[in-house]
Design a binder for these strands. Sequence first.
RNA 1: GGCGAUGUAGCUCAGUUGGUUAGAGCAUACGGCUCAUAUCCGUAGUGUCCGGGGUUCAAUUCCCUGCAUCGCCA
Length: 635
Amino acid sequence: MTTYITTPIFYVNAQPHLGHAYSTIVADTYARFKRLSGDNVRFQTGTDEHGDKIVQAAEGAGESPQSYVDRISALFRDSWPPLEIEPDNFIRTTDHDHIKNVQAILQKVHDQGDIYFSEYEGLYCQGCERFLTEKELIEGNCPDHLKPPAKIREQNYFFKMGTYQEWLIDHINSNPDFITPARYKNEMLSFLSEPLEDLCISRPTSRLTWGIPLPFDDKFVTYVWFDALINYLTGLGYPDDEKFATYWPVAEHVIAKDILKPHAIFWPTMLKAMGLEPYKKLHVHGYWNMGEAKMSKSLGNVVGPKEMVEEFGADVVRYFLLRDMSFGLDSSFSAEAVVGRQNSDLANDLGNLFSRSLTMVGKFMDGRVPEPGEPRQIDTALAGACTAMVETYSKEMTDFRFHLALQAVWEVVGKANKYIVENAPWDMVKDEEQKRHLGTVFYYLLESLRIIALAVEPIMPSAAAKMRAGLGVDNRGDLATLAAWGRLAPGTAITKPEPLFPRMEKKKGGQQPAKKEKNPAKGKEKAPEGLITFEEFGRVELRVAEIIGAEKIKKSDRLLKLTVRAPEERVIVAGIAEHYQPEDLPGRRVIIVANLKPAKLMGVPSQGMVLAAKDGDRLVLAQVPAEVAVGSRVA
RNA sequence: GGCGAUGUAGCUCAGUUGGUUAGAGCAUACGGCUCAUAUCCGUAGUGUCCGGGGUUCAAUUCCCUGCAUCGCCA
């Protein structure tokens, strides 16, 4: 069997974050699982480096687009090894081969008549340097520049996507696993129930030069998807390399839900137009929220892969992300949740099981794998559980239900712990009659651990390697062979390693919901009506912020749009327009609620609120002196 | 505005093709063991299964409606 698994190529206008890491860990885990299953596997990731946002970001950073994309692309590439992610190929859309082949494909599709030249009329904002959709406008204005966009005409090239609509609907219906999980398939089918518009695939060089020139018209560059999606082909050396012939028809793409439409609609129709088979499967996952809030730069709650590895280590991060998210749904990330998984699942259940088993083999079995005797019911039950687990595990891994795969493994971990208690080897040793079962007990225990290590390998490569080393086994061979019961050779020397996973303290000052109450009853007490507990108050995060900008919101008498530093920059809409003039506000230090759920007011997203006192008809901002540092907590 | 999804124990979720006591993990309390990373095993709970209405001998499960959250579309 052959497997080609990809992540999206990540857009380099921002640094890598948790979401990128998740997609890539999923793809890596799947690649490792397929390799373990004996497949010929290729795993590709990379970066998307063209377009106007890149030019803007480069300008903002004061460097050329090329040096900017080189720098950020390297950030992505370097994020993966610490997470034990090992792609076979890292593609960049600025690679020469990619550019050359994108042009060849454009030429081909153009030659056969699926690309045409046409005029487009749209709402263009000078400030944003882009077209806006009706939907984005607020009261007819650009939301960022508060000016009406100009209606302008622009000529561009279009891809006749609509030609392939019926074919695509049919393909999705006759291949139920083409888009998974099913909710996303349904979403796309519903989208396809309306006629497809053709896809604009160019930008005039008068507006954008940082892109791949169209081969048939050098006054235009390729726009976004016709450049980006094709990476999945050019990364295989399309059209001539034999890698293409080997890996293309089996391609599986991992994406987050935000780029569902390009992958589920644009990409298959593009492939069809090129005369190629569509990919095999699209695996769509949800978002990681930070606690309650969405992850966003302006909220300053973006977690980078680097910090996560430094704090928890690759194995724990990988385990947590795969175990805690139901693939396809959104999930929430918090340091507390990671520590919880690490302590209970990893340290207590698996780590301690491994540790206690090897210690006893050292103590009671002379540090060698014993010869098993005649198994009793309790022994064969454990072996049966392992075999059943491998089957469930394989199925769930294949279907991208990683949390269920891991759940199945941990059921066996639990059974093994129980097996120890039920046998109580420390008592067996003392009883001549019982003693003869001891070898069987430890053989079955060690075999279970060997099989658990095997299952855990794609998710936690380091921990699995430690377990293998301790058990004195290797992982050469495929899953079906290795998972067979009884491969562990009696007489093999066992060496107890350092603990697999350390226990972590529940951590971190500030946000921490206070450690255990001395009087536990008190913690649960509900506050009398009308009062809140200290803990409830503690959830409100008040901070000092400096107003750095203020403007009126059109059509609103009461609202001002404030830009503040807290210390990160954020926008807060405040109902103080009747009491303060915008020009009087910059420089003032006020108190804001920093962890208020973001909301839209008159179409303007607001991240927090400003405290003010209401004195009759007057409204007075709660201010603090300038010597108080911006960002200070107020309590 | 249209379409759809979700709403179950303190938390994260599973489940019920309608039928006696609605489940798992975590968290909590108590008990047991001592090989182990103060770990493991056992026991104990609590739920208007979002609100309202309907169908039915019987609804958390089906239907309608409302509310909340989220997604897609316009």
